[in-house]
C-alpha cells in the first residue's frame, strides 16, 4: 500500500477544515453573545416566532450575521412602548433613524410595538458597505386622533454602535425603597412615548379590542415622508 504523500495529506487537512468550518460556521464563537442570547430565555409559546415575538428584547443580538437569526440580520430594531411600566406596545408609531451620512429611514411599529430596519434599507455608505453609518439619531412619533401633531419624542443622545434599542433601553429595577422607577443608573428605561402611566392612559387610552397578533394581516400606516 502506498504511503500518503504530502499533497494528499494537505488535501485531507483541507477537507477536515472545511467540515469543521461547516459545522461551526453558522454559530457564534463569541461567548458574550452566546451568554446574552441564553439569558433572554425561551420564546413565549403564545407568540409564534416572527415579527411579533420577543418584544422589548435586544433584537440584533440574534438578528446579526453571527447570531442564530443570521438569515434575517437587522441594522436597527426594537420595540416602542406607550408607558414606562405597563409595557403597553405602541403600534402604528413612526420610528425615524438618521445616520451619520444624513440618510433617514422611517419604519412603522406593528401591534407589538416592534420594528426593524435592514442594512439594505440604508443603502451603501461611503465605504461601500451596506448599512447605517454610525452615529445615529432616533425619534419616535405617533399620530393621535384629534391631535394633528401627535406624540413625538427624540433621543437626547446618539446611538454609537448598537442596533438593538433594548441593548441600552431596559426596564429599570425598583429603587432601593422598592418604588418603581422609570430609569436607573445604568439604563434610561424602556423606549416609551410617555414618562408616566397617567400621561400614557390620558394620551392613548387602552383599547380592549386590541388583539395582537391580529387575526388578519396587519396594515401599517406608512411614514408621511414615504408617501410623497
Amino acid at each position: 500500500m502506498r504511503k500518503l504523500s504530502l499533497p494528499e495529506r494537505s488535501t485531507t487537512f483541507l477537507g477536515v477544515a472545511v467540515v469543521v468550518l461547516a459545522m461551526f460556521g453558522g454559530c457564534s464563537l463569541d461567548p458574550v453573545q452566546n451568554g446574552s442570547i441564553q439569558a433572554l430565555g425561551d420564546e413565549d409559546p403564545a407568540i409564534p416566532q416572527g415579527k411579533y415575538h420577543r418584544a422589548g428584547q435586544p433584537c440584533v443580538l440574534c438578528h446579526s450575521t453571527t447570531g442564530p437569526a443570521s438569515d434575517k440580520p437587522f441594522a436597527v430594531a426594537g420595540t416602542v412602548f406607550v408607558d414606562p411600566f405597563g409595557r403597553r406596545p405602541s403600534k402604528q408609531t413612526w420610528v425615524r433613524v438618521r445616520d451619520g451620512e444624513n440618510r433617514q429611514v422611517c419604519k412603522t411599529t406593528n401591534c407589538k410595538g416592534n420594528f426593524f430596519i435592514t442594512d439594505d434599507e440604508f443603502g451603501s455608505s461611503f465605504d461601500g458597505k451596506a448599512g447605517p453609518a454610525y452615529p445615529l439619531l432616533v425619534s419616535v412619533h405617533r399620530s393621535l386622533p384629534g391631535n394633528p401633531s401627535g406624540k413625538f419624542r427624540a433621543m437626547q443622545s446618539h446611538i454609537g454602535r448598537d442596533g438593538s434599542c433594548a441593548g441600552c433601553h431596559r426596564p429599570a429595577p425598583p429603587a432601593a425603597d422598592g418604588k418603581a422607577v422609570v430609569a436607573s443608573f445604568d439604563t434610561p428605561g424602556v423606549v416609551r412615548l410617555y414618562e408616566t402611566e397617567a400621561e400614557a392612559k390620558a394620551g392613548i387610552p387602552e383599547d380592549p379590542n386590541d388583539v395582537c397578533p391580529p387575526a388578519a394581516e396587519e396594515v401599517l400606516i406608512p411614514c408621511p415622508e414615504d408617501l410623497q
Binding site: V181, S184, F185, D186
Partner: peptide, 14 residues
C-alpha cells in the same frame, strides 16, 4: 448615560 451607582443619591440616567 451611565450614572455613578449610588442608591442614596438616586442618580438616574436622563
Amino acid at each position: 448615560g451611565l450614572r455613578v451607582f449610588n442608591p442614596e443619591a438616586g442618580l438616574r440616567s436622563g
